[in-house]
C-alpha cells in the first residue's frame, strides 16, 4: 500500500434542508484499500456515498482527491467539466440496479466501449478488442458482445456494469449495494469476482452495503453509520468480531447463522 492517501475526507456534512443526511464524516482512503460503509436504511450511508462521489453537493466539509497528476483537489471545487471527466476516467460507480449504470438499449460491447470513446478512442477494432477482453474478465461470453443488456440476467448485467466502469483503469470505485437484488448463488460469484478484480487492479473502493458478509469479504476497513453519524469505524474484522457500540452489536448479532 502506498504511503499517501488517495482521498481525504474531512467534516463532510450533508443536510437536505433541515433534515440530516450525514454529518461530520472524516476518513482517509489509501490506494488499494476497500472501505465498507454499513448501516440500515436511512442511516445516511447512501447519502454519504452520493456525496463522496460528487453526485451531491455537501452542506459543509471537503473531500480532497489526489488526481492522476498528483495534485490535490477538493472534488467540490472542480469545474463541472473536470468533475465529469474525473468520474468517467479515474472513478467508477457501480449502482445497485444495473439499469441505472448501463445503457440498456445499446449492445454490451458499446456499453463497455463508451468510456473509451468518451476519452477519444476512435478505432473501432481496438475498442471492440478491449470490450471483448473485459467481457472475458467479468465472465460474460464473447458471443454476447452484440446483445443488449436487456436480454441479460441480473448477475450478467451487474458484471457488465463492472466491466463498463473498470475499462478506463479507474483508481477509485464507488459501489452501492453491488450484490443487492441478486440471488445468493449469483451474489457469491459476483463477490468473488469483485474481490479478485479489486486485488488484481489494486483498486480503492468505497462499498455501501447492509450485508455484513459482503463487508467482511470485500473490505479492509469499515464504518458503521446510524442516524447520519459514523458511530464506529476500524478494521473490518475488529468491528465485526468485537463490536463496541450498542448498534453495532445489534447489527452483528442480527446476522442469521447458516
Amino acid at each position: 500500500m502506498s504511503d499517501e492517501p488517495l482521498l481525504r475526507v474531512s467534516n463532510l456534512t450533508k443536510y437536505y434542508g433541515s433534515r440530516l443526511g450525514c454529518a461530520d464524516v472524516n476518513f482517509e482512503l489509501y490506494p488499494g484499500e476497500v472501505l465498507a460503509i454499513v448501516g440500515e436504511s436511512g442511516s445516511g450511508k447512501t447519502t454519504l456515498l452520493n456525496t463522496l462521489s460528487a453526485n451531491l453537493e455537501p452542506t459543509s466539509g471537503e473531500a480532497l482527491y489526489r488526481m492522476r497528476d498528483e495534485s490535490w483537489r477538493n472534488i467540490y471545487e472542480l469545474s463541472e467539466a473536470e468533475r465529469r471527466f474525473l468520474t468517467r476516467t479515474d472513478w467508477g460507480f457501480v449502482h445497485q440496479n444495473p439499469a441505472d449504470g448501463l445503457r440498456m438499449t445499446v449492445s454490451a460491447g458499446a456499453n463497455v466501449g463508451e468510456r473509451l470513446m468518451a476519452v477519444g478512442d476512435r478505432h473501432y477494432g481496438k475498442i471492440r478488442d478491449t470490450a471483448l477482453d473485459w467481457l472475458g474478465r467479468v465472465e460474460v461470453a464473447a458471443d454476447r458482445i452484440d446483445d443488449q443488456p436487456r436480454s441479460f440476467s441480473g448477475g450478467m448485467r451487474q458484471r457488465l456494469q463492472i466491466a463498463r466502469n473498470l475499462v478506463t483503469g479507474p483508481r477509485l470505485v464507488f459501489m452501492d449495494e453491488p450484490t443487492g437484488g441478486l440471488d445468493v448463488s449469483v451474489q457469491a460469484r459476483l463477490l468473488d469476482l469483485l474481490r479478485q478484480l479489486v486485488g488484481e487492479l489494486g483498486l480503492s473502493a468505497i462499498v455501501v452495503t447492509h450485508d455484513l458478509a459482503v463487508a467482511r469479504l470485500l473490505s479492509h476497513r469499515m464504518m458503521v453509520m446510524k442516524g447520519g453519524h459514523v458511530i464506529e469505524a476500524g478494521l473490518t474484522d475488529r468491528v465485526l468480531d468485537d463490536p463496541r457500540e450498542p448498534y453495532t452489536q445489534l447489527l452483528v448479532s442480527s446476522i442469521l447463522q447458516v
Binding site: 463541472e80 467539466a81 465529469r84 445503457r103 445499446v106 449492445s107 460491447g109 458499446a110 466501449g113 463508451e114 468510456r115 473509451l116 470513446m117 468518451a118 476519452v119 476512435r122 473501432y124 475498442i127 471492440r128 458482445i145 452484440d146
Partner: peptide, 22 residues
C-alpha cells in the same frame, strides 16, 4: 445540453459503434 457545453461527444460514437457491430 451539458454534453454539448462540455464537448462530451463519446455517445455519438457509441451510435456509430452500434451500426458497425450490427
Amino acid at each position: 445540453r451539458k454534453m454539448h457545453a462540455l464537448e462530451e461527444y463519446g455517445l455519438m460514437h457509441v451510435k456509430l459503434y452500434e451500426d458497425i457491430a450490427r
